[in-house]
Design a protein around this nucleic acid. Structure first.
Lengths: 212, 212
DNA sequence: AAGTGTGAAAAGTTTCACAGCG
DNA sequence: CGCTGTGAAACTTTTCACACTT
């Protein structure tokens, strides 16, 4: 028996979603230069993909190009933003403010791109506050109540690897739906939660393979 | 005209190479627990993949499992390490020691995994040294001579986005073959250079799409 | 003429299922 | 018997090529 699928957007390839972010960046740049129409060839070159791929990606959620002309920069940017769920500022918490965690807190690159890290949590909040971090740092015991009160859905996880699974379990129960995980471990979560792994050592390892 | 290709390993799927790093991590853990044989089912579960996939990945570079028994942990770990080019400690430089760059320098997660950040470069080295960084920081004018003298092949790039392409051009000419790029830009490099992008805002954006 | 939208082919990857070995 | 190694099937993603619109 086939499930009918009320599939609003299920069949957009995962990789295409990553590319949407890239397109969005490129469109911002065009917008800043007051360009108001762009062809698939031009935008594709800026994004580092093939024109056909770009057209196919955009076609997944409608058709708003003009044949013979191209895509309207402003409208396309808005559509991508909405598709990515970026209409509103997303609050984010950071859990585990050790070496990497506090480094990320001092780096304000998230804010610039529209995400606000509204709080950090650590087993030892005092030590972190002392490190010159401006975001409020709470004890990890306050995690659940904070997530609930502020309706936070996204978390950046930087706890030591041996605690990562236990902490993510707590986050999920508390209502977190997306986790950016910096621990070198494969986290087990239910299908309602999305985990993205960023493993810096692994990225270097990967490069290592390709340099002869 | 086709290039004949002395293809020693060309046909290993790119994704499989990422997984190799994961397997390697899992094997380290097993080794620490004095396990000396592991089945594809067990290792696959730890790595978060299907057993068949693991077997296929390993088969890409030889056959060293014992039927009815499994894989020898020690030997497998060594083979993966060598395949990834990790036999020797890889020196790495970091270019652009601003917010994120100096945060990464203070975070010593690379060293732990066998990569040594031997130097950093910045347009304003004094400012960086003042930030409590222990790695030597040089002026970016010394980039080329340093890369040459120390035969560095890997670079971590954290310069502001508007300088990223110009700096990577210099790196490539100087002999860098692998770049871990933190700038939100698609870098143009020749086929002899591998670029890995880490874009934290993009990762959050991606999560954003999946949370409802 | 220029450039989109898209079926269909090609390429790449994962999963299955089972023969074969220790 | 248990578990690897692997060809073939299934699935996913990319690329091509061209009809069609402005």
């Amino acid at each position: 028996m086939e499930i009918p699928e009320k599939t609003s957007r299920i069949d957009i390839p995962k990789k295409a979603i990553y590319r949407l972010s890239i397109y969005y960046r490129c469109l911002q740049k065009l917008r800043a230069n007051d360009v108001d129409t762009v062809s698939s060839t031009t935008l594709a070159r800026a994004a580092g993909v093939k024109p056909a791929q770009l057209r196919k990606d955009l076609a997944y959620f409608g058709q708003f190009g003009t044949r013979g002309l191209g895509y309207p920069v402003e409208i396309l940017a808005t559509i991508i933003r909405d598709t990515l769920g970026r209409e509103h500022l997303q609050p984010v918490i950071l859990v585990g403010a050790g070496n990497l965690g506090s480094a990320l807190l001092r780096y304000h690159g998230f804010e610039k791109e529209g995400f606000e890290v509204i709080a950090a949590f650590d087993a030892n909040p005092e030590a972190t506050r002392a490190r010159g971090v401006s975001v409020p740092v709470f004890s990890d015991s306050e995690l659940e109540s904070f997530i609930d009160t502020h309706a936070v859905k996204l978390a950046i996880l930087c706890v030591p690897v041996e605690f990562a699974q236990a902490v993510v379990n707590r986050l999920v129960v508390a209502g977190i739906q997306g986790v950016l995980n910096f621990s070198p471990i494969v986290l087990e979560v239910g299908p309602e939660v999305t985990v993205n792994n960023v493993d810096l050592a692994m990225e270097l390892e990967h490069l290592s393979y390709f340099i002869h």
